[in-house]
């Protein structure tokens, strides 16, 4: 059995099998690869490289997608007139 490594996915620590690729991780998480962006240690990956990039100990992976939003979603003021 492959060695287990520790990685971080969307800020959460997670055990992962050594040699597993980004595509494997997405598949394990039941995330379809279209419509997501993956950042590996701050580098945005090309979708066609998901299957080639294997993850290493300490890697930080961010998986992002689209959610509902208009403007200024974060830190929105309460909207009351002052």
């Amino acid at each position: 059995m492959a060695n287990e490594i520790q990685i971080q996915v969307n800020g959460e620590p997670r055990g992962w099998r050594a040699g597993g690729t980004v595509a494997d991780l997405l598949s394990d998480l039941a995330i379809t690869t279209e419509r997501v962006a993956v950042e590996l240690n701050l580098e945005i990956l090309d979708r066609k490289d998901f299957g080639q990039r294997s993850l290493r100990e300490g890697d930080r992976v961010e998986i992002l997608g689209f959610i509902g939003g208009g403007c200024g979603t974060k830190g929105e003021s309460d909207g009351r007139e002052r």
Binding site: E12, I63, L64, G65, F66, T73
Partner: peptide, 13 residues
Amino acid sequence: VTVAVRRVNITDR
């Protein structure tokens, strides 16, 4: 339609 980019929920698929 505008959308925002955020972390995908990986704990509750």
